[in-house]
Design a protein around this nucleic acid. Sequence first.
DNA 1: GATAGTTTCATACAAGTGTTTGAATTGCAA
DNA 2: TTGCAATTCAAACACTTGTATGAAACTATC
Lengths: 223, 223
Amino acid sequence: MASDHTRSAILAAAERLYADRGFGDVTLRDIVAEAGVNLAAVNYHFGSKDELIAELFVTRSIATNRERLRQLKDAEEQGGGRAPIEAILRALVGPPLRGCLGPENQRSTAARFMIRASIESVPPIRRIKNREIDHLRKFAGAMRRSLPDRSDVDIYWGLNFALAMAHHTIRESERLTKLSEGKCDLDDVEDVVARVVSVATMALTAGNAETKAPARALARDAR
Amino acid sequence: MASDHTRSAILAAAERLYADRGFGDVTLRDIVAEAGVNLAAVNYHFGSKDELIAELFVTRSIATNRERLRQLKDAEEQGGGRAPIEAILRALVGPPLRGCLGPENQRSTAARFMIRASIESVPPIRRIKNREIDHLRKFAGAMRRSLPDRSDVDIYWGLNFALAMAHHTIRESERLTKLSEGKCDLDDVEDVVARVVSVATMALTAGNAETKAPARALARDAR
DNA sequence: GATAGTTTCATACAAGTGTTTGAATTGCAA
DNA sequence: TTGCAATTCAAACACTTGTATGAAACTATC
C-alpha cells in the first residue's frame, strides 16, 4: 500500500466530527469535506458508513480493554492470583473514566468520541458492545477469586453496579456538574475513580456473604 | 373536538412501534400504516415527528415523576419533614425500575418504550431530559434534610450513583442476564430496588461525614 | 516507457425521508 | 338544508441519504 493518507484522513475527520456533533447529524459528505477527499473514498476504503464507524469504535475500545486487562493482570500477579477487590474494580472502571473524563478543554478527540458512543448508541456500535461479555467474564472470574465467600449473584450485581456508576458518570457528567452547581469536580478523575471503587467495594463486601439484599427488610412501600 | 380517535391511534401505534423496533428505523409511514390513518395526520395533529416523540415521552415521564414525588412526600410527612434516606432513595429509583423491569412477556408497551428511550436517546427526548434537573433538586433537598451532616458534594454523588445503578440496570438488563447466565433475576423487581437502595444508602452513609472518598488511600495504580 | 494494478474523482442513482398542499369529506350548528 | 369549520386524504414536494459507476490519474514493476 502506497500510503494510507486518504484512509487515515477519513478516520481522523470522522472521529472529530462525530465527537463534536454526534452520529445523528454527520453525513458522509460532511466527513469527506472535512477530510478533503472524495465522497467515494469512504466506500472504497471501508465498504460502508457503518464499517467506518465500527472501525473507529473498535480501535478505541480495544485500547481501553487492553489497558483494563493489563492492570488486572498486574493486580493478580502482585497478589499471587488473588487481587484485592479494590484493585480489580479499579482496573475495570479506571481506564474508561480516565479516558473520558478530565478537563474538558484538554479532552482528546478520542475521549469525546467515546463519550458520544456511550450516549447515542448507534447500531454498529451496539453490535460491538454485545461482544464485550467475554471480556467482562474475566473480571467476574477475578472477583470471584478475590471474594470466594461471595455468591455468584452478588458478584455479578457488584460488577453491574460498578460499570453502572462509571458509565453513567461519563454519560451524565454535564448534568451532574449542573445539578451540583459545580460542586462535584469531574475534572479530578482520580477522585471519581476512588469514589466509584469505594462504593462498588462496599456493595460487594457489606453484610454477610449470604445476605442477598440487606436493605430488603426495610422495604415497605409495597405496590 | 369530535373525537381524538386519529390522534390517539397515532400515539398508540407510534409507542408500540418505537418500543418494538427502536427510534432508528421507524418512519412516519410505518406509524400511519400501523394506525390505519393518513400520513398527513401526524403533522396535522402533532406538528412534526419530533413533537410526536416528545409528547409520548413527556406523558410517560411525568407519570413516573409524579409517582416519585408522591412517594417522597409520603416519606417526608411520615418522618415529620425528615425522611429516612432509604425511603427517599426508594422513592427515586423505585418508580422507574418498577415501570421498566419485570417479566418480559408481561411488560407493557409503555415500559418497553421507556427502555428504548433510555437506550437510544434521540434529540427530542434528550431535550426533555435536560429539564429534569429541577425535579432532581427536590430529591437532593430531601436527602440533605435527611443527612444534615453530609456535605453537599457527597449528597450529589450519592444521588448520581443511585440513578446510575437504576438506569444502567434498566438499559443493560439483557446483558446482565446473559453475563450472569440467568443467575441475576431481573424479574424480581423488588429485589432489584432493594439492592440499589442498599448500595446507594451505603454510599451516602459510610465513613465519616467529612471523608470525601474513603478508598482513596488505597489508590496506588498511579497511571 | 509501456503495462497492470491501485487509488481518486465527478457524477449519477435509487430510495427514503419528513413535510406541505389543496381538494374532498365529515360533523355540527344555525 | 345551508354554511362553516375541523378533519381526512392522495399526491406531490423538496431534499438528503448512502452507494455505485466508469473514466481519469497515479504508482510501481518490468
